[in-house]
């Protein structure tokens, strides 16, 4: 027998071990593009690097797009069909990280809506 219940909402999933300031910027980036998102804050589990979190989040997301925010502030955007991290969608921790976090949010949303990605200006 089939179980009833709410269908899952179409959201980009964010798994985060990082700073709330970064989380806020990532969420803002996604919101500005008009895509729904949900965030799951993680404690000190085994997988706490951005890439592993992003992979896990992408599997959880009904839109197949996940974002991982690592403990030290590195951010990774992942699409479920990728087998490795993609250049231009992994962002190292560092100065100007809030700006980068916003771009990461924009790019995750842009993966969903299918428009060209933003570049981090160096």
């Amino acid at each position: 027998m089939l179980e009833g219940g709410q269908p899952q909402k179409p959201v980009i999933s964010i798994f985060s071990c990082g700073d709330t300031a970064l989380e806020r910027e990532v969420l803002a980036g996604i919101e500005e593009e008009g895509v729904p998102s949900s965030i799951d804050r993680r404690g000190g589990e085994t997988h706490s690097d951005a890439y592993s979190l992003a992979v896990e989040a992408s599997r959880f997301s009904p839109l197949d797009v996940g974002i991982g925010i690592g403990r030290s502030g590195e951010i990774c955007v992942h699409y479920e069909k990728f087998t490795t991290a993609i250049d231009g969608l992994s962002y190292a921790a560092g100065d100007g990280n809030r700006v980068i976090a916003r771009i990461a949010g924009h790019n995750a949303a842009r993966l969903v809506i299918g428009i060209p990605l933003r570049k981090v200006r160096s």
Partner: peptide
């Protein structure tokens, strides 16, 4: 292989 991210949606 995945295309470079600079080409996505372009």
């Amino acid at each position: 292989k995945p295309l470079p991210s600079t080409t996505y949606a372009r």
